[in-house]
């Protein structure tokens, strides 16, 4: 028991020093792909971030690319720990399917209608909570695509698939601007 207790005291110090180190680098640039992969175009954000992870991550070592799926409230700490946040998501703006929509800062809504359950804590509500808690990232940007289909299915519709390369290019341009310090919000 004593040996275990000794080891635990020792390791507690390790944990503290590790978390201090992590804390220093934590407020960083985060690209978050959102959506449900099971509802075709609803999964746009996840498809996009996976493509970025595969092809572009090496060009942006200082950026974290993350598949946020439908994790809802679980994403709050990640949002609050980032200083610049780029969201990729399917967005219903009432436009032609495949239209690319960009919103920045306060243009991104913090609430999206009746909340049915904690399963459906929408990402906008996560932003709302971060705001009330005074921990919203300084730089906030959303690139979205108007869906053509939300039917059951793990692939994007042809219209939305066709605009994916353009979305990825926009992400790249935006990140380059952010990193070189030119892209004001």
């Amino acid at each position: 028991m004593e040996i275990l207790a000794e080891k635990m005291t020792e390791s507690r110090l390790n944990v503290v020093s590790k978390s201090t180190q992590a804390g220093q680098g934590a407020r960083s640039v985060l690209v978050l792909g959102l959506g449900n992969l099971l509802n075709s175009d609803e999964g746009l954000g996840v498809h996009a971030v996976r493509a970025l992870q595969a092809d572009r991550a090496a060009d942006f070592p200082q950026v974290t690319f993350l598949d946020g799926g439908t994790l809802g409230l679980n994403l709050l700490p990640l949002v609050e720990d980032s200083s610049a946040l780029l969201l990729l998501d399917c967005v219903d703006a009432g436009l032609e399917p495949g239209s690319v929509i960009e919103l920045a800062g306060d243009e991104i809504p913090r609430y999206s209608g009746v909340k049915l359950s904690q399963h459906q804590t929408t990402f906008q509500e996560v932003l709302g909570l971060a705001e009330i808690r005074g921990a919203l990232p300084a730089r906030l940007h959303l690139i979205g695509v108007q869906p053509a289909s939300l039917a059951l299915g793990t692939e994007l519709s042809p219209q939305v698939q066709a605009c994916l390369p353009g979305v990825l290019q926009r992400v790249e341009a935006l990140l380059q601007g952010w990193i070189s310090g030119e892209g004001a919000r």
Partner: peptide, 9 residues
């Protein structure tokens, strides 16, 4: 938050 009209959560 209330002033912004977006009560959010």
């Amino acid at each position: 938050i209330v002033d912004s009209g977006q009560l959010s959560i």
